[in-house]
Amino acid sequence: MVKVLIVDDSSMTRNFHAYILRSAGFAVIDASDGVEALEKLYTEGDIACIITDLNMPNMDGLTFIRRVRQEPLFADVPIIVVTTLDDATDRKEGIRAGANFYLTKPIQPSVLVESVRIAVGG
């Protein structure tokens, strides 16, 4: 199964996105901030796609993305940033930091699933 890492400080959002992706046949791992997410990246291995929020305590999304990209091991893992309609600057920052593209909340379940499918390819 294709493993997806969901990083979000809202447990509801995590559970919700996880539920959708699991229903679509993905394996889902989640983390509530950047620090935990990095930990999961190293410990879980073979994560095929990362979906991350930007606004988080401890380590925010931008820092997290930069850290992921610095690590050669994860340089090619697709990263999808989840933002709201109103943070136009944030999402550009996200892309600049190393994300592949962003999704705007609220995300239609089918769009979330398809975006991940596109991101992981095949």
Binding site: F101, T104, E114
Partner: peptide
């Protein structure tokens, strides 16, 4: 206005791609 356009539904794959494509063009 904003809210209304947001809640419109669409089909998954095409919409997902549309989102990505828009960002690509913008960039």
């Amino acid at each position: 206005e904003e809210v209304r356009t947001q809640t419109e539904s669409g089909t998954g794959a095409l919409e997902a791609f549309g989102n990505i494509m828009e960002q690509f063009l913008e960039l």
